[in-house]
């Protein structure tokens, strides 16, 4: 090794190693954006950013879990669409059956809406963990199937006439000026942080993704944890589907079509390693905020929405290239 490696690390590089460059990039983006466009700092705009970041955090949390156990979930966007259609249809059906109480309709409708999501998650988990099929193929297959079914059931037209309680209260309701989805995201963040840092379950997820064979040989039921990761991912996507449906006010088969790409971007930018075994929920949440700020900035700057996917694509390439660069340097030092 060169002489440089022997010199003790400076304080800044230690800090950088611990939290990465993402927080600095985020702060820099916010400052530049605020200087360029003061409207960014308006409370209504910031709440808007926070809302979008919350949707992204929840769905990317699921993506993170699946990537940690060494997989991918391409079907998350399709699960959002399927949940939207099934919950809307259930609510419309329940109210036409003559149930008076809106509360009962909404509760049952949401639960029934999550059933297909759960089914997709269970199928993904079974095919990946038991039949050992490549997660990429499995989830791209279930994605197509789910989107097809959602499109077939709705016939391409949105489903309206859901109870006001759902569309107004859950979709637009606020507590202490913040939309409910923000609290939901905070709850997911807290629960997953607790799981990853304080529980055996969290450690098992890392172990299975880090080295599946070794984990199995030490007596871990690897199948179970891989399966669980897919089910949790589908469930979180389903919850996002419910909130998004309430927000747009109709059941739509095209809802969430960008979320697959975005959730994978968020996970990757948040430092979740594609080889499995690495990833922290707090970094994923930070990365979700970063992506939400970036999209908001592009909208404020009146950049055509067609450019957004180009820029997101470039950001992914940059983030992954940086990660792989860091990795190769680390390997050299060992």
């Amino acid at each position: 090794m060169t002489a440089h490696a022997a010199i003790p690390e400076s304080r800044t590089s230690k800090v950088l190693k611990a939290i990465g460059i993402l927080p600095f990039v985020l702060v820099l983006t916010c400052v530049l954006l605020a200087l360029y466009e003061p409207r960014f700092l308006r409370v209504s705009n910031l709440i808007n950013v926070l809302r979008n970041a919350s949707f992204l955090t929840i769905i990317s949390a699921g993506q993170m879990l699946v990537i940690i156990v060494g997989g991918f979930d391409i079907s998350v966007g399709a699960i959002v669409a399927l949940t939207s259609v099934s919950s809307a249809l259930s609510m419309v059906g329940l109210s036409s059956m003559g149930i008076e109480s809106a509360g009962v309709i909404v509760l049952l409708g949401c639960l029934m809406g999550l059933v297909p999501a759960l089914a997709v998650g269970i199928a993904n988990g079974f095919l990946v963990s038991v039949l050992k099929i490549s997660p990429f193929m499995v989830t791209i297959g279930t994605m197509t199937i789910a989107v097809g079914i959602a499109g077939y059931v709705t016939g391409g037209t949105p489903i309206y006439d859901m109870p006001e309680l759902f569309t107004r209260e859950i979709g637009r309701g606020k507590f202490l000026r913040l939309p409910y989805i923000v609290y939901a995201a905070a709850l997911v963040l807290a629960l997953l942080w607790f799981m990853q840092n304080q529980t055996r379950l969290g450690r098992y997820f890392y172990a299975v993704g880090g080295n599946e064979k070794a984990s199995r040989l030490t007596g871990l039921n690897t199948r179970k944890y891989i399966w669980l990761a897919y089910v949790l991912s589908a469930l979180l996507a389903g919850i996002v589907g419910l909130f998004l449906t309430a927000r747009v006010g109709s059941g739509e088969a095209t809802l969430g079509s960008n979320l697959m790409l975005e959730s994978i971007s968020v996970a990757v930018i948040g430092g979740v390693a594609l080889k499995g075994g690495v990833g922290r929920i707090q970094m994923v949440a930070l990365s979700a905020i970063f992506l939400a700020v970036l999209s908001n900035g592009m909208s404020l700057a009146r950049i055509d929405s067609k450019y957004h996917i180009i820029i997101i694509g470039l950001v992914i390439v940059f983030a992954v290239a940086a990660e792989s660069f860091r990795e190769s340097r680390r390997n050299k030092h060992v």
């Binding site: 991918f72 990429f136 790409l261 994978i264 990757v268 594609l274 055509d304 067609k306 450019y307 957004h308 996917i309 180009i310 997101i312 694509g313 470039l314 992914i316 390439v317 992954v320 290239a321 792989s324 190769s328």
Partner: peptide
């Protein structure tokens, strides 16, 4: 760059789809 082909082509997919529509 030794980057996972899935991520690489996912990114280039979104970039060039964007370019085509733009």
């Amino acid at each position: 760059g030794r980057i996972n082909p899935f991520i690489v082509t996912l990114a280039t997919m979104s970039i060039f789809t964007g370019v085509a529509t733009t």
